[in-house]
Nucleic acid binder design. Structure first.
Lengths: 114, 114
DNA sequence: TCCATATTTCGATGATTATCGAATCATGGA
DNA sequence: TCCATGATTCGATAATCATCGAAATATGGA
């Protein structure tokens, strides 16, 4: 994982609305949520939300798919796990450390080739 | 953990120099590194580095201690683990998830009451 | 085709951020 | 006390970011 990618991902998460948004999707699971539902849940104007969704998508943290008129967004657990792993790489010089993989990524979430 | 704290921590990490700096300290372990050694390792002017160190300290991600004329900085593993845990809280609606604690925090690193 | 709904793009504005040299502060030794 | 060293603060500048209404785009149904 490249450090530029990681910076983009961290920048994406380093904002109140996007952090709430990402956590909402993490908790929603692989089924995800429609943009409208997210806007309502967060109380953010549609155009603002769209901006934030684009940031997270561009950072590779969430995925988009269409369902009729709605666009459904869902968290990319693989990307997230890669991010956490990068941050703790070679933790403490290699001693007493393990890879961070808090969420099983292989179930129904194989959209991306993370 | 408050979301404002998390945003501050993520903002602190969302910058090339600070990300490198934090990872350097993570890999250096609890002994940490002096500001001067960090500046040399990263090739950043002292005043710039000082700015970045202040950001990470303010975010609670690193700790500072004095050793003679040098200020030694070290990663706060407890804060980091709390951050990772927050991001993945209630992952997938509670199913197939575990707390993220990639690094054992109880060894020689009990400076902070994380 | 025409309309309603779902969402994104555009454009302007205000706010926050990174940078680095010069000046300042703190510590330890002579 | 005086000096050298390690590190931070100050100040100015350039760049990036968040916000939101209005306009534009895409989809599905009548």
């Amino acid at each position: 994982m490249e450090s530029e990618t990681v910076v983009r991902a961290l920048s994406a998460l380093a904002q109140e609305h996007r952090l709430s948004l990402f956590r909402l999707l993490v908790q929603a699971g692989p089924d995800g949520l429609a943009a409208g539902a997210i806007a309502e849940a967060l109380g953010v104007p549609a155009s603002s939300l769209s901006f934030h969704l684009a940031q997270l998508t561009n950072a590779g943290l969430i995925a988009q798919r269409r369902d009729g008129r709605s666009l459904i967004y869902s968290a990319d657990y693989g990307a997230m796990n890669a991010l956490l792993g990068f941050l703790m790489e070679n933790c403490c010089g290699g001693a007493m450390c393990a890879p961070a993989a808090p969420c099983d990524t292989k179930d129904k979430n194989e959209r991306t080739a993370a």
